[in-house]
């Protein structure tokens, strides 16, 4: 066997794998965003049982490891007779994971809109849907930006867990390169650096948004 050393082409492979990390993150955030949005609505609904179902969902997702969500979707999907590529299982589980956390973040944002805004819009004869659409959600959206971007960092990092079922994203690519080069320290530092390059700007963006939000509300 010829040992390769960790050079430019290996680094290039890592960078191309980073693309899959990004793709998976986008799937998780958009899928999880849609599901999480409706769960957040259910969580703040006027129907008691809807609130209970949503709260239970959130409690469960936040009480189990991402890895278990991954295995359950992976084996669950194949049980259902679906032979799907790892991307689908990875995307599905990341979606479920993100939905549980986004729902909780957004519930907090919806509930932090003062209740007088509900009363004022109700007194103007708006329906509940109109209240959400025109008054509550636009304000909640602004409040939610910093924490949503902050959560995106968590998603980027947690996509690495999908490497365990063999989905080739950045962490898995690192393992593959390591198997060929036997230079684990270098390889995994490079992998970590690539994650950092994606996550750090997002973290800073989240912080900046947070500061801006505070500056506004104290004007």
């Amino acid at each position: 066997m010829i040992l390769r050393t960790f050079g430019f082409s290996e680094f290039g492979f890592l960078v191309s794998a980073l693309l899959w990390t990004v793709v998976l993150t986008i799937i998780a955030l958009s899928g999880g965003g849609i599901v999480g949005f409706f769960i957040a609505l259910a969580r703040t609904s006027t129907h008691k049982w809807l609130r209970i179902v949503a709260a239970t969902y959130i409690q469960i997702i936040q009480g189990i490891p991402v890895l278990m969500i991954l295995f359950l979707s992976y084996y669950g999907l194949s049980l259902a007779g679906l032979q799907l590529p790892p991307l689908v299982a990875a995307g599905a589980s990341m979606t479920i994971y993100a939905s549980g956390y986004l729902a909780e973040i957004w519930r907090g944002c919806i509930q932090s809109v003062p209740k007088q805004q509900w009363e004022a819009s109700e007194s103007l004869a708006m329906t509940r849907t109109q209240q959400y659409r025109y008054v509550i959600l636009p304000q909640a959206l602004r409040i939610s930006l910093p924490s949503t971007v902050g959560f995106a960092v968590q998603v980027v990092k947690n996509t690495s867990i999908t490497s365990i079922i063999g989905f080739v994203e950045l962490a898995r690519a690192g393992q593959l390169i390591n198997n060929a080069t036997f230079q684990p320290f270098r390889v995994f530092i490079a992998v970590a650096a690539l994650y950092f390059v994606v996550c750090y700007p997002l973290s800073q963006l989240s912080r900046w948004l947070e500061r801006r939000l505070h500056a506004r509300s104290h004007r």
Binding site: Q117, E119, A120, S121, A125, T127
Partner: peptide, 20 residues
């Protein structure tokens, strides 16, 4: 209630304008 509220306006102590 909505029909009623189209005919009845209310103004609160804390203004409650929509800030956005």
């Amino acid at each position: 209630l909505r029909a009623l509220r189209t005919d009845v306006g209310i103004v609160f102590q804390s203004y409650n304008l929509f800030p956005h």
